[in-house]
Amino acid sequence: MSPRPDITMDAAEVRAFLATRPRAVLALLDDGAPVGTIADITVVGDELAVGVSDAAARGLLARDDRVCVVADQFPTYYEIRGVVAHGRARDLETTGDRTTFRLSLDDVTSFDFAKLPREGAGSGRAR
């Protein structure tokens, strides 16, 4: 059995990919159960700046700061890429109906299917 290929991104690749995704899925906790929403994201140095307008999600964030951001793309099979960042929301600020926070990028999983060895005869283009 051949070893599994390493398809993870390095830190620079993670930041570069996240910089292309203006929005992502944000996971929060509601009494310990996971709940999602959509959030705006911006890479600032080694962190993510996250903005949330969804009122229900903002309420959850105020009660439990443990979060996860999931950003992915899938134009074709071998262009599938994704980043999952875990941590605690830091520097929470609420202005009007919008809450922003910072999330460090030191607990991240990632995948880049371009690093997979090509399987079969296909080009990987969409079908």
Partner: peptide, 18 residues
Amino acid sequence: TRTVLLGTRADGSPTGWP
């Protein structure tokens, strides 16, 4: 078919999988 499935890690924090 595009979704993110959300669950929790062993420490109770949220996680997700496209």
